[in-house]
């Protein structure tokens, strides 16, 4: 028998999909900036502005991405136990034990026994933390490059990164390389969602839409969890 558990609150789901949309837009417009298609036109350049528009979309989306990310950090302090910030950092031995378990069960598949989880598993939480660091890097490097094109004070807050890298070229290079991280991340992320949904049947995939997961009755957390921070370990195990 399965029990229905409300895991992902509406703000978390909203963040997830807005974030996914932003990353998609940023990656597509970003790759277009790096590799614009070959066009030829005999008309005046001033009649066309698609590359400028493309860059505008990239920059505008960057703001949405940043503030959405900032909101998620905020939610890590006020949200439920599954979105709590403690989960993302290695504080407890149990988290490392869980990483080992996940590696054995899901990656090496040495054990043919799914371990049931409520939030993410520890490995997934850590991976998301690494991803957050890449977010920060993209934001800093992106706005640092943008600073010299803008009169707005906000991008200027990131201008210090330019001398750190030694110049715009190096920043651009790393900013571009990090785009590949997002592409690879998406491949793995989407695959693992399919995997967990298929193997465990917890409804991982729909949980990011409706917020509910389905757990075996004996594995599900009690209706009223004790403290928010203890959430990860309480029922932890797997799902991306």
């Amino acid at each position: 028998m399965f029990k229905r558990v409300y895991v992902w609150q509406l703000p978390v789901r909203f963040y997830h999909w807005l974030n996914a949309l932003c990353i998609l837009v940023l990656a597509v417009t970003g790759i277009l900036i790096a590799h614009p298609p070959a066009l030829s036109s005999a008309s005046e350049a001033s009649f066309s502005y698609w590359f400028g528009v493309n860059r505008f979309i990239h920059f505008a989306t960057a703001y949405v991405f940043l503030f959405n990310f900032a909101f998620r950090i905020y939610w890590g302090f006020v949200g439920n136990q599954y979105s709590d910030w403690h989960n993302f950092l290695p504080f407890r031995r149990a988290q490392f034990r869980e990483v080992g378990k996940v590696l054995r069960v899901d990656i090496l598949q040495a054990v043919d026994k799914p371990v049931h989880a409520v939030g993410h598993n520890a490995l997934a939480y850590f991976t998301y933390f690494a991803m957050f660091l890449v977010f920060v890097f993209q934001v800093v490097s992106g706005f640092a490059m943008y600073a010299s094109m803008s009169d707005f004070w906000f991008p200027q807050l990131f201008a210090w990164a330019v001398p750190l890298f030694g110049g715009d070229f190096a920043i651009r290079q790393w900013h571009y390389l990090a785009t590949w991280f997002f592409i690879l991340f998406t491949v793995v992320h989407v695959y693992l969602v399919f995997y967990h949904d298929y193997v465990e049947g917890h409804g991982v995939m729909s949980s990011m839409v409706g917020g509910w997961k389905f757990l075996p009755k004996d594995e599900a957390p009690p209706a009223k969890p004790a403290t928010p921070a203890s959430g990860a370990t309480a029922g932890a195990t797997k799902s991306p």
């Binding site: 070959a38 066009l39 036109s41 350049a45 001033s46 698609w50 590359f51 400028g52 493309n54």
Partner: peptide
């Protein structure tokens, strides 16, 4: 620059 913004590039 107008060619850049118009996405018209030397190949």
């Amino acid at each position: 620059r107008p060619y850049y913004d118009a996405g018209l590039f030397v190949e």
